[in-house]
């Protein structure tokens, strides 16, 4: 009887782990297009058109510029095929307004992510 319980545990735990691993990998397979998208707004909350969003990728200890995108008429930017899991985002406009650098950490490489709106403001002198 005791042995049956043991066999149960020894079979059940690895199976549960295996199931979790498989489920996790299936989830990854459907969500790893490397799409990072979000909105750029000004302080009043209006979408900013034509702002440049820069993605900085972590390179060991410092962050290095990797890719740029521009916001469309709705103030939305979109990076595709970002093969990374850690980086920073910053929005800049042509008239010198900037957003803070937003730290971005993903659960797996090229996870599709929706970023909370980046707010641009005039940097203090």
């Amino acid at each position: 009887m005791r042995w049956r319980a043991l066999a149960h545990r020894f079979v059940a735990v690895p199976l549960a782990l295996l199931a979790i691993a498989v489920a996790w990998n299936i989830y990854i397979a459907f969500n790893d297009h490397g799409i990072i998208e979000g909105e750029v707004r000004d302080k009043a909350g209006a979408p900013v058109v034509g702002a440049t969003v820069i993605f900085f990728e972590r390179n060991f200890i410092y962050y290095e510029e990797k890719q740029r995108a521009t916001t469309d008429a709705q103030g939305i930017y979109r990076f595709t095929d970002m093969k990374t899991h850690i980086g920073q985002l910053e929005a800049r406009t042509a008239d010198g307004r900037k957003s803070e650098r937003r730290q971005l950490r993903l659960w797996f490489r090229s996870q599709d992510t929706e970023v909370a709106p980046l707010i641009v403001e005039t940097p203090r002198a």
Binding site: H85, I86, R105, L106, W107, F108, R109
Partner: peptide, 11 residues
């Protein structure tokens, strides 16, 4: 506290 150190080590 966060779990991202575990993600980092994987990559």
């Amino acid at each position: 506290p966060h779990l991202f150190n575990y993600v980092d080590v994987w990559y």
